[in-house]
């Protein structure tokens, strides 16, 4: 083998490249099938309402504090940056409009999506991977319960439905953060700031934000379920599954954000 490598280094490189490409296609195929299977289970009975309610609480309600805090600081920092940057060409007065646009169109959904990847994807992946390692998934099957329907479907549906609400909260708190910093530190008039914000935002801005939220919610929960269900053995397997799920969710959220922004706003 080593002789072949030495004799044909280019062939060896091509073989490795080919294997990597095939591996990537296989992974995409597996993930696609997993996604289709999850949505089939979301749409067909039986429905596990208790598991769905539990997932709603975990994905949505319990994420509110982290989403609120992240959005508050981001909105405040954005106001300071735009004021300082705008001052270079005497455009300080555009702070309300740019904060509103930046938070609602981009930073709100992306920050919430990344917070979901950190908080929800990791927790789902670690929980399901541990269930796999401790044979709880096998136990579900022997108890006549489909793990996709019991574990994946309620979580992904909860992500789809709750993350747009979280994004709406994040957008509102982010704009509030910008308003607060602007009137306290930058001498803006409160009423004028709010009027400029409301007048400037349009319905497509808000719709795009919520659609992004739904897409990011699905990605975050789906990645947790996929990597959890396909985890390796032992503690190392659980750790690897958790890490991979967060990385995959974060990358896919940013990629989806680009595609959705292009779909909504590229003229």
């Amino acid at each position: 083998m080593s002789t072949t490598r030495a004799a044909n280094p280019i062939l060896h490189l091509l073989a490795r490249l080919g294997a990597a490409v095939l591996g990537t296609f296989a992974a995409v195929g597996r993930l696609t099938l997993f996604t289709l299977s999850t949505f089939r289970h979301i749409l067909t009975p039986p429905f596990y309402s208790r598991e769905f309610f539990h997932a709603l609480m975990n994905v949505g309600y319990l994420s509110l504090p982290v989403v609120g805090l992240t959005a508050l600081f981001t909105g405040g920092a954005l106001a300071l940056q735009i004021y300082a940057g705008g001052a270079r060409f005497s455009a300080e007065q555009v702070v309300p409009q740019i904060v509103a646009l930046g938070v609602v169109r981009e930073l709100g959904p992306v920050m919430v999506g990344l917070m979901m990847a950190a908080r929800v994807t990791s927790s789902i992946a670690a929980e399901i991977a541990t269930m796999k390692v401790t044979e709880q998934i096998d136990a579900l099957v022997t108890l006549s319960t489909n793990p996709m329907k019991y574990l994946a479907a309620p979580r992904v549906l909860a992500g789809l439905l709750t993350v747009p609400f979280l994004v709406a909260v994040g957008d509102t708190v982010g704009v509030f953060g910008g308003w607060f910093v602007s009137i306290k530190s930058l001498d803006f008039n409160s009423a004028t700031y709010l009027k400029n914000t409301i007048d400037f935002l349009e319905m497509p801005d808000i719709v795009s934000s919520l659609v992004k939220g739904a897409a990011f919610g699905v990605i975050a929960t789906l990645m947790g379920c996929y990597f959890g269900m396909n985890s390796g053995r032992g503690a190392q397997g659980v750790g690897q599954a958790t890490k991979s799920s967060v990385v995959a969710a974060a990358v896919l959220i940013l990629a989806a954000n680009f595609l959705l922004t292009q779909a909504f706003f590229a003229a």
Partner: peptide, 19 residues
């Protein structure tokens, strides 16, 4: 499959209880 598995009970090595 549901009816088939309903005929079985299983005790797992690590108990496999749902935490």
């Amino acid at each position: 499959r549901d009816a088939f598995l309903a005929r079985f009970g299983m005790l797992f090595q690590g108990s496999a209880l749902f935490d």
